[in-house]
Design a protein around this nucleic acid. Structure first.
Lengths: 343, 343
DNA sequence: CGGAGTTCGTCATACGTATTACGTTTCACG
DNA sequence: CGTGAAACGTAATACGTATGACGAACTCCG
């Protein structure tokens, strides 16, 4: 018994709504009506059930291209991130993709690597998308993507003014770091900053400076490095070679902290006995370091998920509010009271 | 002067091939003919140039949905990987996406996280794809995806028999590791194995065992742990607590090596003076560790790129050959001659 | 029993493209 | 100058879906 659509000239083919219609003894319109969910009052429950069963039996899946053409939609969103290799952005992707999949949307990442949109040899998929989620980007960098509905992630208040946004309360996180170290007795701080022009890092630096300034007797020196172990080691080294060495290094990022570890070891300093170190983000490396790193956990996956939710709302004509996600201080063994001594 | 397609009722709209045709004074067919690249002998060079210029001027981009519907294609491939968060798979993705983008294909990653295809709450995008690239997967796990053209990555000879495949010569890499350690004088080895049922890890283990067995006086103990720092620390610890402790730990993965570092430090062993450690893959963490890790660099990005190339060839009706990519031993400072002593 | 309303479906069409089959003009050549 | 062929374009169509405009049967009540 060969069902319509199952085989054609011996070649198997995906059944279409027409095949389902024929098998169920109704018209193609009816099939479409039933499988969309707006058939109330147009199709009898009996017919609807019959159609659904037939569709199920034939393994019918609507043709995406045809539907997209008809509806002028693509069921695809673009996720614009600086790089997919960083674990942080991997998590953002996961959160976004999970929510997207649950709603029948596909997610395409752009650009496929660290190449900027400008100099990129890749054809931007500007067409064929319904909306854009951008993380850790400036509005400027998004020019080339046209007027698609947009949600900004981790991009600060400037972006939040222009589009629905989801941010982290990084200031709170950094304040918690300083408070934790201050409670341990630290007063001389070093800030290993990320040499990256993104809002989140500016905010982290400003928050650290403000928190230390509010601390009686608090001092803060700063050095910047790229988010890469050797550059970070060098930057942290500059701080450790200062006449009045900091007793705690506050790093903008867990990977920077890994560099700080190296700088400390190279100078015979033991963490946390001689030097406390903190990170930010809480990615895998924080637990791989020895001693394990005190850091601020940012719910990156949640960021992606909430971003996608906001975009969905936007696509349905809503006006999702901007919001901020809290970080959480995770105290491990890289922080301790400062060494006793003159200072 | 309002161009056709530029504005309709004041709302701006993407121009279609029909708009271009009208603006250029030709028929829609001609536009399609010219913009496809098979117009030789059917359209005069003059007309072709005019059409191209008009299309350019109007910023015409063909509608993907319509083209897909017409051609029965989707210009989308599915990349199936265990997880996107691991840096290794991130690199695979990048390599694949780069080649894909260059050929006008989109890449969708599946599943969006570690959930298996079976228990996954996500609708598999089985429809709407032209082909599949699977990395570190068994053929069994790919059942649900239907009969789409398939390329297997890093999945071993069994998979290579069923589909075009790109693998790493992990055996060579592991042999190089053992040779390196043997040259330093090591004879008692420990193998920190990944408790993961994937071909590549079986191959690594087998190669290590074979290489050590071929070594006069060589011995090898083994312990397995999940690819996660604490589990790895525990597994490595078991080896270090052996009566005749190994002088070198061969780890299946860089992250396992991080765990081995922890186990060593917990026992007061200094790397590499008291213990040599090697990793595999050469992901970022290898350079973040202190001392930096001797490991085998696997060109993951190249793996993805070659996989995508193979799939492209497959999609065009070709029969791409399976191939293997060489790894490269990267000697850093985690390996040294074994401590002098009885043994 | 007749007409107004309601219920249940179907017809026809449009989305934008690629391509086949066909028509018109031009040209070379005998 | 007639003619066949080459050169150049175009009309028409199909891909599979969603949906507005219709229509037929059936119900209800005056």
């Amino acid at each position: 018994m060969t069902e319509a659509g199952e085989t054609v000239n011996g070649r198997s083919a995906r059944p279409t709504s027409k095949d389902v219609a024929q098998a169920a003894g109704v018209s193609q319109s009816t099939v479409s009506l039933v499988l969309g969910r707006k058939w109330t009052g147009r199709v009898s429950p009996a017919t609807a059930r019959a159609v659904q069963e037939t569709a199920e039996r034939l393994g019918y899946r609507p043709n995406a291209a045809a539907r997209n053409l008809r509806l002028g939609t693509t069921r695809t969103v673009l996720l614009v991130i600086p790089t997919i290799t960083a674990p942080f952005f991997g998590a953002v992707y996961i959160g976004a993709a999970r929510v997207a999949a649950r709603n029948g949307l596909a997610v395409v990442v752009y650009p496929p690597d660290d190449a900027g949109p400008a100099g990129s040899p890749f054809a931007a998929p500007q067409d064929a998308i319904d909306g854009i989620i951008a993380s850790s980007m400036t509005l400027d960098a998004l020019r080339g993507f046209g007027p698609a509905p947009l949600v900004m992630l981790d991009s600060g208040p400037a972006a939040a003014g222009a589009a629905p946004a989801v941010d982290f309360a990084v200031e709170d996180g950094m304040r918690a770091v300083v408070a934790h170290l201050a409670a341990l007795g630290h007063r001389r701080f070093g800030h290993v900053a990320a040499a990256v022009d993104e809002w989140t890092f500016r905010a982290r630096g400003d928050a650290a400076a403000a928190a230390v300034a509010a601390l009686p007797g608090g001092t803060l020196d700063r050095a910047a490095g790229r988010i890469e172990v050797h550059s970070a080691k060098e930057a942290a080294g500059r701080l450790l070679d200062l006449p009045h060495r900091p007793t705690a290094l506050i790093c903008d990022d867990d990977l920077l902290a890994a560099g700080a570890y190296k700088a400390a070891r190279a100078r015979g300093l033991e963490i946390p006995r001689d030097l406390s170190v903190t990170g930010f983000d809480d990615v895998e490396i924080a637990r791989a370091l020895e001693p394990e790193l005190t850091t601020v956990r940012l719910p990156a996956q949640e960021l992606g998920a909430q971003g996608m939710s906001a975009l969905l709302e936007l696509l349905e004509g809503g006006r999702p509010p901007s919001r901020a996600l809290p970080g959480e201080l995770v105290v491990r063994t890289s922080t301790a009271p400062p060494p006793a001594g003159p200072g």
